[in-house]
Design a protein around this nucleic acid. Structure first.
Lengths: 199, 199
DNA sequence: TGACTTATCTACCACTCGATACAAAAGTTG
DNA sequence: CAACTTTTGTATCGAGTGGTAGATAAGTCA
């Protein structure tokens, strides 16, 4: 079999650049011109590799999920439900204010509302946000069965609460809030788990 | 003085339609064609009345703030800090799932990230979101002085927490969550105030 | 080397974007 | 009525949109 001319750019490297553009400008706000410039390639190369603008976003989202899955492995390894919650919100506070990335969360910044022809983008992002909530819910369900969470606790509610706070922290970070501000939000949020007031 | 030809459309009515378009599609996703069609006017009328697309958004945001100010008056009139928090999150759960409007919050949906030429839109929305947080903070400061909140409580943190949860609820609602889901998030969030676990 | 396959580049497609020039229309004021 | 002022609709502006056709370059395999 013949191989043909090899690709002259690093797909993952290009995806990282595209991810940053989507992150900073949203799906609608990211033009092909911006993306190709950041990726260091021309439009035909982009379309040959990713099919369409939407295909490029999905590839970038896959890469984003891959990154975050490492964090989530650490989060879900917390000893108790309270530990898991603390690790989760802590990692969100860190990652959403990581100077190596645009502020906030790609799954929120990417586009909650889009224009004509991009109607399925918000759904795509929502589906991926829901993934994290599911992981937390299953972890809390397990904690409840073990007895780590009281019988009256609702794993689904707790997971949705944490996921919602994480989205809110994404919005907060996108407007320039610093890491300490997000940490404070995390601290207050954790009182829903501890049942004690802040010191 | 001469009056000239009178405007043939109702400005507030047109603003309500424009608000809905911005709400549903975001600033970048809302085209002039979509806006003028929804408003029932032609581009020259839009530009004569509002100056620019950004001017139209600001006018719509003013009208949005006007609507919400009534809710906030009720919220801030709560007897205790806990009452205020409960009223706040409750009103958010209602308004963000009001079938009369697009789901979520205009100040979040409107645009967290925008394209070239719209860089100041996210800042504009963030400024208006911060307004609500300030109102809550001042109300909690007052509660602390009265002794309604303990001396160790941090009004700024509590206000930021509630504001963040509200933004998160906006994201949640935008992805199709129903009113009951938002109410549950509110219920869990309130435990940060009560210091008791959920039943 | 030369056939074959794939990637890349230049140039461009039809279309939509936000915004406007211009003239006709509709009202007030003398 | 006529003079004046502002709004309205048509028609369009230049720039930018996502996406692609066709030629050329760069590699592998015989």
């Amino acid at each position: 079999m013949v191989m043909g001319r090899p690709r002259s750019f690093d797909t993952d490297k290009a995806l990282d650049e595209a991810m940053e553009v989507f992150w900073r400008h949203g799906y609608d706000g990211a033009s092909i011109a911006m993306l190709t410039k950041a990726m260091g390639i021309k439009p035909p190369s982009l379309y040959a590799a990713f099919g369409s603008k939407e295909g490029l976003l999905k590839a970038a989202l896959d890469r984003y999920a891959q990154r975050r899955s490492e964090h989530m492995r650490f989060v879900l390894a917390g000893a108790t439900a309270r530990d898991v919650a603390e690790r989760f919100l802590g990692s969100i506070a860190e990652s959403h204010t990581d100077p190596a990335n645009p502020p906030g969360c790609l799954l929120v910044q990417g586009g909650l509302a889009c224009g004509a022809g991009s109607e399925n983008i918000p759904f795509e992002l929502a589906t991926r946000r829901a993934q994290t909530e599911t992981e937390l819910r299953e972890r809390f369900l397990q904690a409840k069965q073990i007895g780590d969470l009281p019988a009256e606790a609702d794993p689904a509610s707790l997971a949705r609460f944490l996921s919602t706070v994480a989205s809110g922290m994404g919005v907060l970070a996108s407007s320039g809030a610093d890491r300490e501000a997000l940490r404070e939000v995390a601290r207050v949020s954790l009182q829903a788990f501890t049942g004690s007031r802040s010191p």
